[in-house]
Amino acid sequence: MEPTRMKHQPFCIIKNLQVSFHGRTVLQKINLTLSDSGIVVLVGPSGSGKTTFLRTLNRLNEHYPGYSGSGKIELKLPGSMQDIQDIHSTDLEVTELRRQVGMVFQTPNVLPVSIAQNINLPLKLVTGLDKVEREARLIEVLQEVHLWDEVKDRLKESSSRLSGGQQQRLCLARVLALKPKVLLLDEPTASLDFKASHRIEDLLIELQDRYQIIAVSHSLRQARRIAGQILVMKEGEIEHLLKKEQFEDLEMLQKLLDEIF
């Protein structure tokens, strides 16, 4: 288990971030310093750029047609703050960045292979661990996401036979197996029912001491439950960065959000 990180230190500094697709601006004028004070939850109306913002942190936007971006993003990765957009940096290749900044998508997207292979394949390709180490890591992460007891007897079964909530936890385990420092979660409970959502939320609260988590959420209830800080976005800009004491009172938060939107 990793030691608890230094609290309240900045882990993400963004300067003048601007992103557009096919010339249409999606993110603009983003200047932000995020500190290590629990889960960061992004809220805002659809189309406000939440997912795009998340994808700037692992440079996944570059896989979308028509992308262009400018600005500077520094993330605290092992060692020190590193400029993640510096493609000439030999210290941090984009594949290594994406290993350290793991991402879980809105709908569970397991590979159409066995449960074990979903975790084994990335481990084999990215980390180069041998078979024994991979098996140990597999058990470790499945326990970490509380899936081990449910799947330990059917690791060779197809992952598509798991329920939605189980698949999403498998996706999370797949990312955790690569030992990331930061976790990006794009509405991870959007396609799940209430019970499965609650389970994932509990899990995130549990994991927040070990990983820096940034999540997009569509529900204010969820945001308040898991967040250490809430980032409010509107029309591609950051409107507010709310600290815990600012959103503990639901009425105050609702009033604030009504003012913004």
Binding site: T95, L97, Q106, L125
Partner: peptide, 21 residues
């Protein structure tokens, strides 16, 4: 599109994504 992004999001190279995913 989501399926295509599994590889890159896990830190696979483009060749690894094509051949393994």
């Amino acid at each position: 599109d989501e399926y295509r992004l599994i590889g890159p999001s896990l830190g696979f190279s483009q060749i690894q994504t094509v051949f393994h995913v």
